[in-house]
Deep mutational scan, measured.
Amino acid sequence: EEEKYTVIYPYTARDQDEMNLERGAVVEVIQKNLEGWWKIRYQGKEGWAPASYLKKNSG
């Protein structure tokens, strides 16, 4: 089951394993960790993003 989330704040990656996020983008969360960083898939790429910048899509 894919978990789709919408980006609610833009984010600029500060590290090579982080993802740039555009507000309104829909991403797939593939791994959650306890530090508040989630691994996401977006446009065929995978990387880490701050969970607080993502909002779960309803339905």
Rank of each mutant, 00 (worst) to 15 (best):
E1K: 08
E1F: 09
E1R: 04
E1T: 05
E1I: 12
E1M: 14
E1A: 06
E1S: 05
E1L: 05
E2G: 09
E2N: 06
E2F: 15
E2W: 04
E2C: 03
E3Y: 10
E3W: 03
E3Q: 14
E3V: 08
E3H: 12
E3S: 08
E3I: 13
E3R: 06
K4I: 15
Y5G: 01
T6E: 13
T6I: 13
T6H: 12
T6C: 11
T6D: 08
T6S: 10
T6L: 10
T6G: 02
V7L: 08
V7E: 00
I8W: 09
I8F: 05
I8Y: 05
I8N: 10
I8Q: 14
I8G: 06
Y9S: 15
Y9G: 15
Y9N: 15
Y9A: 15
Y9L: 15
P10C: 05
P10K: 15
P10H: 14
P10S: 12
P10F: 01
P10N: 13
P10Y: 02
P10W: 02
P10A: 15
Y11E: 02
Y11V: 15
Y11L: 09
Y11N: 03
Y11I: 15
T12M: 04
T12L: 10
T12I: 06
T12K: 09
A13R: 05
A13V: 08
A13I: 10
A13P: 11
A13E: 03
A13T: 08
A13C: 09
A13F: 04
A13L: 06
R14S: 12
R14L: 04
R14T: 09
R14P: 11
R14V: 09
D15P: 05
D15H: 14
D15V: 11
D15T: 14
Q16K: 09
Q16R: 14
Q16S: 13
Q16F: 03
Q16T: 09
Q16I: 08
D17K: 09
D17T: 11
D17G: 14
D17A: 12
D17P: 12
D17H: 15
D17Y: 10
E18R: 05
M19Y: 04
M19A: 10
M19I: 14
M19T: 10
M19K: 02
N20A: 12
N20F: 07
N20Y: 07
N20S: 08
N20H: 08
N20W: 05
L21F: 02
L21T: 01
L21Y: 01
L21C: 03
E22H: 07
E22Q: 07
E22K: 14
E22M: 09
E22C: 10
R23H: 08
R23E: 13
R23L: 10
R23A: 11
G24F: 02
G24E: 04
G24M: 01
G24W: 03
G24R: 01
G24H: 08
G24D: 10
G24V: 00
G24P: 00
A25T: 14
A25H: 05
V26E: 11
V26C: 06
V26A: 07
V26N: 06
V26G: 02
V26T: 08
V26H: 07
V27W: 00
V27D: 00
V27G: 00
V27M: 01
V27S: 00
E28S: 11
E28K: 07
E28F: 06
E28G: 10
E28T: 11
V29P: 02
V29H: 00
V29G: 01
V29K: 01
V29C: 10
V29S: 01
I30A: 07
I30Y: 03
I30M: 06
I30T: 13
I30E: 03
I30C: 10
I30S: 05
Q31L: 07
Q31Y: 10
Q31D: 11
K32A: 09
K32H: 07
K32L: 02
K32Y: 03
K32T: 08
N33K: 14
N33M: 10
N33D: 13
N33R: 12
L34M: 12
L34F: 13
L34I: 13
L34A: 15
E35Q: 15
G36I: 05
G36V: 09
W37N: 09
W38L: 01
I40S: 00
I40V: 06
I40F: 01
I40Y: 03
I40T: 02
R41E: 01
R41Q: 03
Y42A: 09
Y42K: 12
Y42G: 05
Y42D: 08
Y42T: 07
Q43C: 12
Q43T: 05
Q43L: 07
Q43S: 08
Q43R: 12
G44R: 02
G44F: 02
G44Q: 07
G44T: 06
K45P: 00
K45A: 13
K45H: 15
K45Y: 03
E46P: 02
E46Q: 14
E46M: 12
E46D: 03
E46R: 02
E46F: 08
G47F: 09
G47H: 04
G47M: 04
G47C: 11
G47A: 08
G47Q: 15
W48V: 09
W48P: 02
W48G: 02
W48F: 11
W48I: 12
A49H: 01
A49P: 00
A49L: 12
A49T: 09
P50V: 01
P50K: 11
P50G: 01
P50E: 02
P50I: 01
P50W: 03
A51S: 10
A51I: 05
A51W: 02
A51N: 12
A51R: 13
S52W: 04
S52R: 15
S52N: 15
Y53I: 12
Y53P: 01
Y53Q: 13
Y53T: 13
Y53W: 04
Y53H: 12
L54E: 00
L54P: 00
L54R: 00
K55L: 04
K55S: 07
K55H: 04
K55T: 11
K55M: 02
K56V: 10
K56F: 09
K56T: 04
K56G: 09
K56P: 11
N57E: 12
N57W: 10
N57R: 08
S58K: 06
S58W: 04
S58T: 06
S58G: 12
G59L: 04
G59P: 11
